[in-house]
Structure formats: structure tokens, C-alpha cells
């Protein structure tokens, strides 16, 4: 039973078509990634889900409710972290969380949430004095303080250093483990690969792929590459005869075999049969990055 259903969503701003035709369904308890190049319509899509924008066409259903008609109910049950949303400079961490907690019927305990997000020694610090990572964690805390069933997080780790980014990822996994469904808008492939159970790739206002990160990679960019130094000369034909192999190249003493499927098993088996040892063997698989390029024709912004 999906908790979010978007069907043939359309949204334009004047002449600009932001979302052309987006359909997707998010299942309870998953981390669902929304990926795409800048301006692809990711944010507009989740803003329609969050009830912040009125779609021009198509349907959106969240927890079986209409984001516009049932806005009051959904605001109690859906937490939203918006892109580039700040707080007043002089507002302190605990004050912000206590204020936002007071808006909800069944809020989380602000003090507990502060500790959980590692802001315990910053509770009396003004927003202005927080680091980028701390601001981001506070922002996530504000999205979670209402004990939501769904959390929508837009550009979660943009502007964070690698360590802060990794910490944030760990946090999001904890939140998911506590039963919250998470919709994550991102343009970091590494983030999607690490966190998301499924991802929708949106390009020019349309969903161009929807699968698990691994599934996406294996269907869109299935090519694998094996590099090794053979202990004895290898006849190319030995390798090219394998159904999994699509090409063999040599660079110096190194052999590079490209192919799909159970490539590693096929190659190592045939080498073993001929008593050839593959030294310095490395398997290179496509990443979500490659799949993304394949799907959208863009390099992911990094």
C-alpha cells in the first residue's frame, strides 16, 4: 500500500513546464530518492506532494489524503525540510525546536531530538553561530519534531563537508529504522546509492527511470570491466568466446575485459582452467553516476 501516489502530475510556471508528466508511488517505510539534473522538476514535484503548490494537472495522494484539501491533517503527519530554508539569526536551537514542537498534536520530545541529532552542546546556541552541518541537522530535526509518518527532505546534504554528509546519512537511516517513510530529493548519486531503497530519475519534467539503485545500474549501465595481469600469455579468443564478454583490450601487460552478467566468475573460471593466475585483479562496475549519465545525458552536479 503506497503512502504517496503521484499520477500524471503536471505543473508549469508561465511558459516554463516544470513538471510535464510524473507518476510514482512511495511505499511505507522506504527511503525513496528523487534524482535528476538541476531544473528537472524534482523540487516542484515534492512541493506538490507537500501541498505547497497546486498542480496544473494529475493527481497527488498522500496517506490517502489530498495535499490541498486535507492540508491541515497532512501538516500534522508529514514533515518537510525545504531547500535553502533558514531561521532567524538570534533564534537558539532549543527555542526553535520547542516552538515548532508546540505546533503539533503529538510532537517528539525536543530535548531528546536535540541529543539524537548531536546538537546537545548547542542547545543554547543562536542559529547564526551554527556551522553548516549543524544548521542542516537542526533543519532535519524541525522536519521530524512533529513525529511525522512521512519526511520529505530536499537537498539534504548540499553544502556539507564529506564527514558531515556521512553523519547525516547515518541519521537518516536511523529515522527510517524508526518507521518513518522518507522522500529524499538529491543530486548526489553517492547519497542515493547509499541511502535509497528505490529511486525515480526525473529529467525534463518526466520520470525516465524508477528502480532500486542496483537495479537501475544493471539495466541502464550493465557493463562491467575486469583488469588483471595474467601470469602467462592469454589468447584473446579464450576470453572472447565467453558469452559474458563483449570486448578485450590490452594496455601493456594489463588485460581489460569488458562484459555483462556473471563476468567475473566466467573469466576467473576460464583462467583457472588454463592455470593462469590473474594478478592485481580489479572489478569495475558501473555506478549510479554512469546510469544517471546514460539516462539524462548530463553529468550529475558534484
Amino acid at each position: 500500500m503506497p503512502v504517496i501516489e503521484v499520477t500524471h502530475l503536471k505543473k508549469r510556471y508561465g511558459d516554463l513546464v516544470a513538471v510535464d508528466d510524473v507518476s510514482l508511488a512511495v511505499e511505507a517505510g522506504e527511503i525513496f530518492g528523487v534524482l535528476g539534473p538541476n531544473g528537472a522538476g524534482k523540487t516542484t514535484t515534492v512541493e506538490c506532494v507537500a501541498g505547497l503548490r497546486v498542480p496544473d494537472g494529475g493527481g497527488v495522494s498522500v496517506l490517502g489524503l489530498d495535499p490541498r484539501r486535507d492540508a491541515a491533517q497532512l501538516r500534522q503527519r508529514v514533515g518537510v525540510q525545504l531547500q535553502e530554508s533558514q531561521l532567524p539569526d538570534r533564534l537558539r536551537v532549543a527555542e526553535a525546536l520547542e516552538l515548532y514542537a508546540s505546533f503539533y498534536r503529538n510532537p517528539a520530545d525536543p530535548a531528546e531530538l536535540i541529543d539524537k541529532l548531536g546538537l546537545g552542546d548547542k542547545r543554547n546556541t543562536a542559529y547564526k553561530k551554527l556551522s553548516g552541518g549543524q544548521k542542516q541537522r537542526l533543519s532535519i530535526a524541525l522536519a521530524l519534531v512533529g513525529n511525522p509518518e512521512i519526511a520529505i527532505l530536499d537537498e539534504l546534504t548540499t553544502g556539507l563537508d564529506p564527514q558531515a554528509r556521512r553523519d547525516t546519512w547515518g541519521l537518516i537511516e536511523q529515522v527510517r529504522d524508526s518507521g518513518v517513510t522518507i522522500v529524499l530529493v538529491t543530486h548526489f548519486m553517492e547519497e542515493a546509492e547509499r541511502l535509497c531503497d528505490r529511486v525515480a530519475v526525473i529529467d525534463r519534467g518526466r520520470v525516465v527511470a524508477l528502480d532500486s539503485p542496483a537495479g537501475l545500474v544493471s539495466t541502464v549501465a550493465p557493463e562491467q570491466r575486469i583488469r588483471f595481469r595474467p601470469s602467462a600469455p592469454v589468447d584473446d579468443r579464450l576470453l572472447t568466446d565467453l558469452p559474458e564478454v563483449s570486448g578485450v583490450q590490452r594496455t601493456g601487460s594489463q588485460v581489460v575485459v569488458t562484459g555483462t552478467g556473471e563476468l567475473l566468475h566466467a573469466v576467473t573460471s576460464v583462467l583457472a582452467r588454463h592455470q593462469i593466475v590473474a594478478a592485481d585483479l580489479r572489478l569495475e562496475q558501473s555506478t549510479l553516476d554512469d546510469a544517471f549519465v546514460e539516462l539524462t545525458g548530463h553529468r550529475p552536479a558534484n
Binding site: 505547497l52 530554508s85 532567524p88 503539533y104
Partner: peptide
């Protein structure tokens, strides 16, 4: 300032 910094917008996502 509140509008530019997204304070109003964030509030719009809450029950307030």
C-alpha cells in the same frame, strides 16, 4: 528577510 530566508515557507509546511 523572513520571506527571503524561507522562514515563512518553512512555517507553511507546519500546522502553524
Amino acid at each position: 528577510t523572513y520571506r527571503e530566508r524561507g522562514v515563512l515557507r518553512r512555517l507553511a509546511t507546519t500546522p502553524a
